[in-house]
């Protein structure tokens, strides 16, 4: 009986711990449901949202397979958003090409609200045709806010409004946007800088 009570207590504590590790809201003005920050999560997952078999969601950050939502594709990659460990928001990028490169970056909801997620990946940084660059933005930030409207939409197909896809190296300069709630959004382009040796 004592064991049963201990086991029940431990299990209950585990549930509470897991529940609190999956926050629906975040601080810094982001006291909103995740669907309000990432609208793609407001829709149920469909067959087209499921990632192909070559995308190893466990290796990419423990991303839950039932959480992925397809954001779009362009001539260089396909893009999804998902929920990773502790409920983090993850941008997933599957670069087209023989190398089968898949990359991800996951942010806490608070960090995502503050700066989004930027990701550059590919087979060779010296060969732009083998690389892709993308940014996932919170719902209240648009590519127009960042002055990237036309640039962001070029060549994109069925791309979600929250996703910006660019050509690597085409974007420079940090931009800060002040929100109505008093917080700010900081957009920082990702620069791939790896030496050859």
């Amino acid at each position: 009986m004592r064991f049963a009570l201990l086991a029940a207590s431990a299990a209950t504590a585990t549930i509470v711990a897991v529940s609190t590790a999956l926050p629906a809201v975040a601080g810094d003005g982001a006291q909103k449901p995740i669907e309000a920050i990432v609208p793609a999560f407001a829709q149920p997952q469909t067959a087209s949202d499921v990632v192909p078999e070559r995308v190893d969601l466990v290796a990419l950050g423990g991303i839950a397979s039932d959480s992925t939502r397809f954001l779009g594709s362009d001539g260089y990659a396909e893009y999804w958003v998902g929920r990773g460990n502790a409920g983090n928001v993850c941008l997933i990028m599957a670069v087209k090409g023989e190398a089968q490169v898949v990359a991800s970056s996951c942010a806490t909801i608070t960090n995502f609200y503050r700066q989004g997620i930027g990701l550059v990946a590919g087979a060779d940084p010296k060969e732009p045709a083998t690389s892709a660059e993308a940014y996932l933005l919170p719902a209240d930030i648009t590519s127009d806010d960042l002055g990237l409207g036309m640039q962001a939409r070029s060549s994109a197909q069925a791309t979600h409004d929250s996703l910006i896809s660019l050509r690597p190296g085409s974007n420079e300069g940090v931009r800060t946007i002040e929100r109505h709630d008093g917080s700010s959004f900081r957009f920082a382009p990702v620069s791939a800088a790896l030496g050859d040796r």
Binding site: Q100, V102, A103, S104, I117, A121, P125, V190, S191, L194
Partner: peptide, 24 residues
């Protein structure tokens, strides 16, 4: 590595969000 340095795959992302790649 050299000689014949070749990149198989690379990825970069904005800190503090970790960067992960997978490839063949």
């Amino acid at each position: 590595p050299a000689p014949g340095y070749t990149t198989v795959a690379y990825a970069s992302s904005a800190a503090p969000n970790p960067t992960v790649i997978s490839h063949k």
